[in-house]
Design a protein around this nucleic acid. Structure first.
Lengths: 343, 343
DNA sequence: TCCCGGCACTCGATCAGACAGAGTGCTTAC
DNA sequence: GTAAGCACTCTGTCTGATCGAGTGCCGGGA
């Protein structure tokens, strides 16, 4: 099932022409554009072979061929050589993102915008999972009697807040004591450790009848309960309209629905976040009845060592991989570098 | 230029049929559906009069008529009688929004979702302008030497944060002192007053050479500088695809671009936020070359007395005003009531 | 064995013409 | 003022014809 050099040549020419024109490619075009010096008739023979092996598809008899998902897969995995991003684009992106006054969510949102603008696709950035981030500070504020807001700050300046009911007898001074106690207790730990510490400490204070600590830990437990979806920054959905494959409103609708339904999107991103480096994912290869006509290109980013989240773009299968892939990779690197600075 | 009763009858029947079918309405249809007991021929005469006065438009000779923006304007202003929302829908919405554990942004986002789901249009909620909201608490956190994050909590549990450079000599204890000093200074004021107070106090401490207060006020001034856009919660853009008027991708694109470009959207919402009660705004009546085929229905909501923000929906001109308008109005009332509780 | 020119064939896109249907405007009669 | 009749207009759809792109296959030549 391996491909010969000539077959690879035809496939490459065909895919690169198809990426530009979005139309089925015929044997004459390939004969002219490739440097194989073969006649259209011979090309046709090769194309027939490629179609039989599953790399090409034919929309109908007597149309040209278009690459199948398998064809694209081979192209991005085995054929395409990726060149590093031009340094002026590197600088442009680094300059705009490297601003200490941006908090992490803003940084990630901007990165998503850049990806979208540079690739003419839809940019996406999955925010870090809170679990692995270092605790910084917690504060309780009395909104009204019996209602307390917890404000939780983690490294990198990510702020989370949560409103919760509490003992109506608590006053502001109590809450300040709580914060002081907890801040000291949790210092220098990551959130997962903080949660463990809460359970452990609750046990200890219960035996020692420390009322203040017990109340504080009760509140802390509520504040640290995980019930928030991870944020995803999606930018540039308007770019979908530029691609002829989405002139069909039904397909467009499907894809926009996917982006709006954060839970499905999160699941998808979670799947790809486990891969090590850059990952190229064709909708067609996996899901049966859902949106099939898209590609997701993504790369994880990390803080110190642990992977934190994912950056990526989503667009039609037909896209300029040679340009997009290095850009996604570079963006992930920039974010990793900037977050290392902050965490 | 006033309309006779028969003309109003024809216009009403025509608009209501058009709202259902989205197709030009002919004289025969109106003769059957209206209770005027007139023949199609007579209806035609009346329709010709209405067209001449500008209430109807004709896509081409020998098609039926469709209502013009002026026709819709007359319909929503003079003809339509609005009934209050059915109580089961009222309860459903109130139940889901009335949860003390939601912070204000989440509350508004949910309201936007509900509007979108109930009307099958796109829901929008403009968050309150921070100026008029009461100060609650400020905190400074040392992210790293020379970099401080301010966390500002205002009434209703709205949290804003801002990262700013600071004197590298500052340590955490200094920052705690700053917060204590400022919290006391600003207690019970709204943000606009807080800003005034900062300026005034800076003057005083400068003359008295109080270094700590000066540094604290410096940070406060940066923290309270207004440079953040007001948030807008837009939900349900997928609903656009349900409407035949947006089967034209170019129109759809325009409208989605408007929603994605927050600054333009804010300007639009700001225009309508000044009106007192419900406001119905036809794109066609105003802008010349931009998106014309939409209607914005909005209503301001308030905390105690001052108007805070706007709720609304955006959709095609052809929509079920009898249902949508009371829903928008009710949503604004619910939000007003819930915010009064919190502020 | 590989290559390629030639040829018949297939399919989609486009165009013109025919036709039905919806709806109008006008005239005329009551 | 109302309504019936009629000619007219415009759109959408269907049909058949034609064109062009592209294929598959056959057979001749290096």
């Amino acid at each position: 099932m391996e491909l010969q050099a000539r077959e690879i040549g035809v496939l490459t020419t065909l895919i690169e022409d198809y990426i530009q024109t979005a139309a089925p490619v015929g044997s004459r075009t390939i004969a002219k554009k490739s440097n194989l010096n073969l006649s259209p008739a011979s090309i046709r023979k090769i194309m027939a072979d490629l179609a039989e092996k599953g790399y090409l598809e034919q929309p109908h008899t007597s149309a040209g061929r278009i690459p199948s998902a398998q064809g694209f897969r081979f192209y991005v995995d085995a054929i395409l050589k990726y060149h590093p991003l031009p340094s002026d684009e590197q600088n442009l992106m680094a300059e705009h993102l490297d601003d200490a006054r941006l908090d992490v969510p803003d940084l990630l949102r901007n990165a998503s915008r850049f990806l979208s603008a540079f690739t003419q696709q839809v940019g996406m950035v999955l925010a870090p999972k809170a679990n692995d981030i270092g605790f910084k500070h917690i504060d309780f504020i009395l909104l009204k009697p019996g209602l307390v807001m917890a404000i939780l700050v983690v490294e990198g300046g990510i702020v989370q807040n949560k409103i919760m009911p509490a003992d109506p007898g608590l006053n502001s001074d109590d809450l300040i004591k709580f914060s002081n106690y907890l801040n000291q207790l949790f210092q220098g730990r990551v959130l997962a450790q903080v949660r463990a510490r809460i359970v452990q400490e609750m046990d200890a204070v219960r035996r020692q009848y420390q009322a203040m600590a017990r109340q504080a830990l009760d509140l802390a437990q509520q504040a640290f309960a995980v019930d928030r979806e991870r944020e995803v920054f999606v930018e540039g959905t308007v770019n979908f309209f530029g691609h002829p494959e989405f002139s069909n409103p039904a397909k467009l609708r499907e894809l926009l629905a996917l982006l709006e339904e954060r839970s499905r999107l999160l699941e998808l991103l979670d799947q790809v976040s486990k891969s090590k480096g850059i990952s190229i994912f064709f909708g067609r290869e996996v899901e049966q009845d859902s949106v099939q006509e898209y590609t997701l290109i993504s790369s994880p980013y990390q803080g110190q060592d642990t992977p934190l989240g994912v950056v990526g773009i989503i667009g039609p299968i037909r896209m300029n991989y040679a340009k997009v892939v290095p850009l996604v990779e570079f963006t992930a690197q920039v974010i990793s570098r900037l977050l290392k600075n902050r965490f």
